[in-house]
Simulated assay, not measured.
Amino acid sequence: MGRDDERDVLDRMGRGLVYTESEAVFLDERRRADLIFAYNHTPPGEADKRRSLLRAILGSVGERPALHPPFSAAFGSNVHIGDDFFGNVNLAFVDDVEIRIGHGVMTAPSVTLTTTGHPVHPARRVDFARFSEPIVIEDKVWIGSNVVVLPGVRIGYGSVIGAGSVVAKDVPPMVVAVGTPCRVLRDITDDDLTTRTSAADR
Results as ranks from 00 to 15, higher is better:
Gly2Leu: 04
Gly2Lys: 05
Asp4Gly: 12
Asp4Met: 12
Asp4Arg: 14
Val9Lys: 01
Asp11Tyr: 13
Arg12Thr: 06
Met13Trp: 07
Met13Phe: 02
Tyr19Gly: 05
Glu21Ile: 00
Glu21Arg: 14
Ser22Asp: 14
Ala24Pro: 10
Ala24Ser: 14
Val25Thr: 11
Phe26Leu: 05
Phe26Asp: 07
Leu27Ile: 05
Arg31Met: 00
Arg31Leu: 00
Arg31Lys: 13
Ala33Arg: 13
Ile36Phe: 04
Phe37Val: 09
Asn40Phe: 04
Asn40Lys: 09
His41Gln: 02
Glu46Trp: 01
Glu46Asp: 15
Lys49Val: 15
Arg50Asp: 02
Arg55Val: 11
Ala56Val: 04
Leu58Met: 06
Gly59Pro: 01
Val61Arg: 10
Gly62Leu: 03
Arg64Ala: 11
Arg64Ile: 00
Pro65Lys: 04
Pro65Ala: 11
Ala66Leu: 14
Leu67Phe: 02
Leu67Tyr: 06
Leu67Glu: 08
Leu67Asp: 13
Pro69Tyr: 02
Gly76Tyr: 00
Ser77Met: 03
Val79Cys: 00
Val79Pro: 02
His80Gln: 09
Ile81Asp: 11
Ile81Phe: 12
Asp84Glu: 09
Phe85Glu: 12
Gly87Arg: 03
Asn88Met: 03
Val89Phe: 15
Val89Tyr: 15
Asn90Thr: 08
Asn90Cys: 08
Leu91Gln: 01
Phe93Glu: 07
Phe93Tyr: 04
Phe93His: 03
Val94Ser: 08
Glu98Asp: 15
Ile99Phe: 08
Val105Tyr: 02
Pro109His: 15
Ser110Ile: 00
Val111His: 02
Val111Gln: 06
Thr116His: 08
Thr116Val: 10
His118Glu: 03
His121Met: 13
Arg124His: 13
Arg124Thr: 00
Arg124Phe: 10
Arg125Lys: 05
Val126Met: 11
Val126Lys: 15
Val126Ser: 08
Phe128Ile: 10
Ala129Ser: 09
Ala129Asp: 01
Arg130Met: 12
Ser132Gln: 06
Glu133His: 11
Pro134Glu: 15
Asp139Val: 04
Asp139Phe: 03
Lys140Leu: 12
Trp142Glu: 09
Ile143Leu: 10
Ser145Val: 03
Ser145Ala: 14
Asn146Ile: 05
Asn146Pro: 13
Val149Trp: 00
Leu150Tyr: 06
Pro151Tyr: 01
Arg154Lys: 12
Ile155Thr: 08
Gly156Cys: 06
Gly158Ala: 12
Ser159Gly: 02
Val160Met: 06
Gly162Cys: 08
Gly162Ala: 15
Ala163Gln: 07
Ser165Thr: 13
Val166Gln: 05
Val166Trp: 03
Ala168His: 09
Lys169Val: 02
Asp170Gly: 05
Val171Phe: 08
Pro172Phe: 06
Pro172Arg: 14
Val175Gln: 13
Val175Phe: 08
Val176Asn: 00
Ala177Trp: 01
Ala177Asp: 11
Gly179Tyr: 05
Thr180Met: 04
Cys182Phe: 05
Arg183Ile: 09
Arg183Glu: 15
Val184Phe: 00
Leu185Ile: 08
Asp187His: 11
Asp187Ser: 14
Asp190Gln: 08
Asp191Ile: 09
Asp192Asn: 11
Leu193Ala: 05
Thr194Gly: 07
Thr194Phe: 10
Arg196Ser: 13
Ala199Ser: 12
Ala199Arg: 14
Ala199Ile: 11
Ala199Val: 12
Arg202Asp: 13
